[in-house]
Design a protein around this nucleic acid. Structure first.
Length: 807
RNA sequence: GCCGGUGUGGCGGAACUGGCAGACGCAAGGGACUUAAAAUCCCUCGGUGGCAGCACCGUGCGGGUUCGAGCCCCGCCACCGGCACCA
């Protein structure tokens, strides 16, 4: 017998809409639980099958928490600024605000259709001026605290679209949209000093319950390294500084290299005898994109600076100076010491330019390749360092350099400051004006939000300036400080801005005095459990940790870290295990699954499909199994007896199942939790069940498949007798005593090979089990002509008989 | 190259702390019901040999530790994700 899921799901969704059983209550005396999912970008394609995976998982966790007595905040919103909407708007000549409004409508309907227990009254939308007012406010706080600054830097420029592209829009060196080459172009940009927080963003990870790969990826991205800054005297009369993590190899320096972008080159112009050649090389390097420089990295290029030499501070040797693009301006000092013996890049360079290669750590073959040393390798050819291990020599050289005054210990990070501006329309306006006399001046807080003007054309300009730059009425304003003429900043914030703090707004979404009240922040902070995609680990997750730590420093939020726990889900792939994409035609639309099988089946199946953390491929065929399971549950409602007690025959399995489901949900092992419930249902179906048995099952199922559960809960009269919906009941508890059976089945092995099992009383002694085991036919056969020399015995688990031939 | 991760039936996946490999589901085959089909229900379902009892083999490959290894150790291979001239 099939159930009418369409009618049932509609009925309960309407009910929840009216009765709001999932509303979070600020200041409630119950313990709080804040569960968070990454709010979706409301794209024109609507909800993707990838969304329900994390959403359903957290919905289950939150529904269970409510049943466990928590005051749960499980909010939803929309991250609605961004490029796809803007591009769609350009193509179809519809204003992005309208596109966004329509898309949010679609998303809202789809999310409600899946029965999530969101508190819809707290919904936020990052492109709503009431929201981005506070995004701008936080930016102004950053500006006030010297965390935002403007600088000129190269950006990606599409030669065909004549516009600036975000890094994410550059794929393999070409424009994602038109396939034209992307080149670098200098532009003035607002930057955020995330590097100031590099160390804290590493250190504060220690106390957080993040899955390990997230922590590792963030640490690697920040890229802390400990080393030494070393000063080298140069024949130009200057002293240059290099950064090295390997001061033990200073005696192996045979040349120096400076980055083509280094400003010092310009200063040395008159002393470089082959300046024309050097200058040509610089210009060539400038033309290359980062991508080309990276791609062509195998073949080293460079030019020797004629007339410039450096002196090795360790051994007074004079070494040549080169310019080469394998040295990056953005890391360290833009100058490196060349140690070809122990760095493969330096080795390649030395080979190409015929430079000497000195072995300073024993163990390798310098004619073949650089020798990658270990901490325990021994230093040679290095004066006072000779005979030391690499590890000791690093310390010894650092001490020596500091004592002699030509070096300092130094920590470096790979993390760069955050380029915070986009030359686009559909983003938060930056609330600053540029005044000839006062410089950059923030607009007064009372004028926030600085709203995006409605422009006639939000299309891109030829010169790469933001579409806002053409809005002269809007651009030209007066300086808030001196009252003189001034211009507004016309770039907007990147799409990561709004998501940096949205979880704070959920705590107090309608507040028009502050981004959230102190009481709300103190009550709900921090987010207890945040689930999201691995692809956001070094972007959104890191950015929002940075903002939050900054907000803590200025006293705006009560905790240092925003999220106590972070988990991550795997991707849903198409049928063949390939990424879902329009071009492959393998995109699964959740709508189709819901209309064919119902929301409960969709929810159940997306959880049952596999290990939550791993990528899985979707199978339309397999969905049927989940539907069949729900049909069987429905049938139990028709067939169960009226007995309100849990029946003895199901007691053990039921208690085991409650334990399994209770524990598995906490580890997001929804697949095994569901498997356990399937086993229970199979047992109920085969042996029949009572109303009491069914009641417990429904409570367990309630977070997973809420619609069918509420319907059965009502029909079978539980709702009437308790006066509550199933989702408002207490979570079922289990009794360990009822899980433990009187007897246990133990494995019997002979010489490690399984021969059978014996059923014995729990906690049987070794002798009794061995005796029982020897009665097994297979054991007897194996023992023919043998005697027992040893018995391995693990109570209630296994007995293993070790035999040898009878003498 | 570096850092993570993964590898188990035809498929998705289970397996506690080293203790009965393959739970649960899909597909497949056989049967029941049906005029028939769908749905539902029952049975089989890692491989090889055998009518069968049963025997042997089996968790990417090669070694090792152990009474016992999918799980631990050493050495490989393949795939996935991230970073990548970061000195």
């Amino acid at each position: 017998m099939k159930y009418d899921f369409q009618a049932i799901e509609k009925k309960w969704q309407d009910n929840w809409e009216k009765t709001k059983p999932y509303a979070a209550v600020n200041g409630d005396p119950r313990p709080k639980f804040y569960g968070l999912i990454e709010f979706p970008y409301p794209s024109g394609q609507g909800l993707h099958v990838g969304h329900p995976r994390p959403f359903t998982a957290m919905d289950i966790v939150c529904r269970k928490r409510r049943m466990q007595g928590y005051n749960v905040l499980f909010p939803i919103g929309f991250d609605s600024f961004g490029l796809p909407t803007e591009n769609y708007a350009i193509k179809n000549h519809i204003h992005p605000a309208i596109v966004t409004r329509d898309n949010i409508k679609t998303f809202t309907a789809q999310l409600k259709m899946l029965g999530y227990s969101f508190d819809w009254d707290r919904c936020v939308d990052t492109s709503d001026p009431n929201y981005y007012k506070w995004t701008q406010w936080i930016f102004l706080k950053m500006f006030e605290n010297d965390m935002a600054y403007k600088t000129t830097m190269p950006v990606n420029w599409c030669t065909s679209c004549k516009c600036v592209l975000a890094n994410e829009e550059v794929v393999d060196g070409v424009c994602e949209r038109c396939g034209s080459p992307v080149v670098q172009k200098e532009k003035s940009q607002w930057m955020l000093r995330i590097t100031k927080y590099a160390q804290r963003l590493i250190d504060d990870l220690d106390d957080l319950d993040y899955i390990n790969r997230v922590k590792i990826q963030q640490r690697n991205w920040i890229g802390r390294s400990e080393g030494l800054e070393l000063d080298f005297k140069v024949t130009t009369g200057d002293t240059v500084t290099v950064y090295t993590t390997r001061p033990d190899t200073v005696f192996g320096v045979t040349y120096m290299v400076i980055s083509p972008e280094h400003p010092l080159l310009e200063q040395w112009k008159d002393q470089i005898q082959n300046w024309d050649e050097v200058d040509a090389y610089r210009k060539e390097a400038a033309r290359k994109s980062d991508f080309e420089r990276g791609e062509l990295n195998k073949d080293k290029t460079g030019v020797c600076l004629q007339g410039v030499r450096a002196v090795n501070p360790a051994n007074r040797a004079s070494v040549p100076f080169f310019v080469s693009d394998y040295v990056l301006m953005g890391y360290g000092t833009g100058i490196v010491m060349g140690v070809p013996g122990h760095d493969q890049r330096d080795w390649d360079f030395a080979e190409k330019f015929g430079l000497p290669i000195i072995e300073v750590v024993a163990g390798g073959d310098m004619t073949e390749a650089a020798y990658a040393t270990k901490e325990s390798s021994i230093v040679v050819n290095s004066g006072f360092l000779d005979g030391m291990t690499v590890k000791d020599a690093i310390t010894a050289m650092a001490d020596y350099a500091e004592k002699e005054g030509f070096g300092r210990r130094k920590v470096n990070y790979k993390l760069r400051d955050w380029v915070f501006t986009r030359q686009r329309y559909w983003g938060e306006p930056i609330p600053l004006v540029n005044c000839k006399t006062c410089g950059w001046v923030p607009i007064p807080e009372s004028e926030l939000p600085l709203e995006l003007p409605m422009v006639d054309s939000y299309e891109l300009t030829d010169d790469g300036e933001s579409p806002l730059s053409k809005m002269t009425d809007w651009v030209n304003t007066t300086c808030p400080k001196c009252g003189g003429p001034a211009q507004r900043e016309t770039d907007t914030m990147p799409n990561w801005a709004g998501s940096c703090w949205y979880f704070l707004r959920y705590m107090d979404p309608h507040n028009d005095k502050e981004f959230a009240s102190r009481e709300a922040l103190e009550y709900w902070s921090p987010v207890d459990w945040y689930n999201g995609g691995m692809e956001h680990t070094t972007l959104h997750l890191l950015y929002s940790r940075f903002w939050h730590t900054f907000l803590y420093d200025i006293g705006a939020v009560p905790t240092i870290e925003p999220y106590q726990k972070r988990t991550s889900h795997g991707m849903i792939l198409g049928e063949g295990g390939e990424k879902m994409s329009k071009s492959r035609g393998n995109v699964i639309n959740p709508n189709d699954i819901v209309s064919q099988y119902g929301a409960d089946t969709m929810r159940l199946h997306i959880m049952f499909i596999g290990d939550f953390e791993k990528a899985v491929s979707w199978s339309n065929e397999a969905v049927k199994g989940s539907k069949r399971f729900l049909d069987r549950v429905w049938n139990l409602g028709e067939s169960c007896s009226d007995d309100p007690a849990v029946s003895a025959q199901h007691e053990t399995l039921l208690n085991k199942t409650i334990k399994k489901v209770t524990e598995d949900i906490e580890e997001l092992k929804m697949n095994t939790a569901i498997a356990a419930m399937m086993t229970l249902v199979n047992d109920y179906t085969a042996q029949g069940c009572s109303k009491g048995d069914l009641e417990q099952l429904l409570l367990l199922l309630s977070p997973f498949v809420p619609h069918i559960v509420e319907e059965l809960w009502e029909r079978k009269g539980y709702a009437a007798s308790y006066g509550k919906m199933a989702c408002q009941m207490d979570w079922p508890t289990y009794d360990e005593g009822k899980i433990a059976a009187d007897t246990v089945e133990m494995a019997v092995q002979v010489a490690g090979k399984l021969k059978g099992t014996v059923v014995v009383p729990v906690d049987s002694e070794q002798d009794a089990v061995v005796e029982a085991a020897q009665k097994l036919e297979k054991v007897q056969r194996a023992m023919d002509g043998m005697q027992i020399v040893k018995v391995i015995f693990r109570p209630n688990k296994i007995v293993n008989l070790i035999l040898k031939p009878r003498a």
